[in-house]
Each structure stands twice: as C-alpha cells, then as structure tokens.
Amino acid sequence: MGREAILKSIKENKPTGIPLPEIDLNNFIEDINLLEEFKEKAQVVGGTINELESSETIEDVIKKQYPNAKEIVDCSKKLTSLTSISISEETNPKDLQNIDLAIIQGEFGVAENGAVWISENSFPVRVLPFITNDLVLVLEKEKICQHMHEGFQLISERERTFGVFISGPSKTADIEQCLVVGAQGAMSLSVILI
C-alpha cells in the first residue's frame, strides 16, 4: 500500500524539469604534494603514520608498535614470522571479539581527509576493521588521490558488496565535547606507507 501511495503523491507534488548539475573539477585544482597532504590529514584525524624505511619490514614496525598484540589477523599477507589467525568468509564474526590487531591492505588513500578505502575483497569478514582493538592499514605511497571525486572515480568499476572509507580511529565527543579516541570501533589506526 505504501509504495503506490508514496509514488503517486510524489508525482503529483514534485517540481518539474530541474537538470542534474555536473561538477566542474577545475574548481579544485591545487598544487600540493599528495603524500605530504595525506600524511598530515591522517594525523589530524587521530591516526598514526609509519613510512617504511628501506631497511625495515612491516613486521619490524608492527613488533615495535604493538609488542603485546597476541591475536593478530593479517589480511595483507605481508607477515612471515608473526603468527596470524586465519579467517575466512565462513568465520563467525562474533569469534573476532578478542582480536588485538588486524592488518588490512588499503586500496588507496585520499589526501584531503586522510581516509583510506578498503573493500570487502581485502578482508573476508566485514566486522574485522571495526571489532579489532587496533587496526593497521597498509598503503602504497603512490596510491593517493587528491580528493573524494577522484576517490569515487577509482572505485566506480568495483564489485559492489561492502566497502568503507576509514579516516582515523573510532572516536566520540559526546561527553561535554571532550574528544575521546576509542568509542565502539578500533582504538587506534595506523597507516603503514610502503
């Protein structure tokens, strides 16, 4: 009943013929260093940046930064000596409640807001980046776009299931506007640039 009534009412009441405007991306041209801008913004939103030096491995960084992490899920497949709990599409999401650290491959970063796009192809259980205590996103330095318009261009051909832009760790300011990091999602977010 609702559907037909709603559609009929819209048809009767809507304005006519307003065209869909096109965005002019020339308005956003800026001469900036994408990598530097991304690094700055990712920290403004509460994240940590680790630029891998040539002598270092991702494993070195993780051992140093999360010495106490025991339950680790590595979806980036970049760890060799650290043991990773293996998960699959069949894993019950509730079984991930005690995960200390999840490592996920980011597809690209966005310079204007420090966000990283990750899609379900890179992590088999959707709740993982949220339920893990700490989150590490691995990102190739070259894969940084300027703004969200370019970002949506980059994912326009993806297989659409679930994906998320993540910018910093979970946070809230709901108690007297005091910023507290670590609300319901991951307590920290670290981006490792390779």
Partner: peptide, 29 residues
C-alpha cells in the same frame, strides 16, 4: 554514486569541522 564525492566532502566539515567522518560505510549487498 559519484555525487557522494560532493556530499561526503560537505557533510562532516559542516557538522563538526572534521574533513570526513571516521567511517563512511558503503553497503551494497
């Protein structure tokens, strides 16, 4: 979908001054 580029740039900046919300989750299936 590309219209999201416009709205996600505006929403959080207008709301709290953040450049984007921590999570912008895209549910398709």
């Amino acid at each position: 979908e590309k219209n999201l580029g416009v709205f996600l740039r505006l929403l959080a900046r207008s709301a709290t001054g953040q450049p984007i919300t921590t999570y912008s989750s895209h549910f398709n299936k």
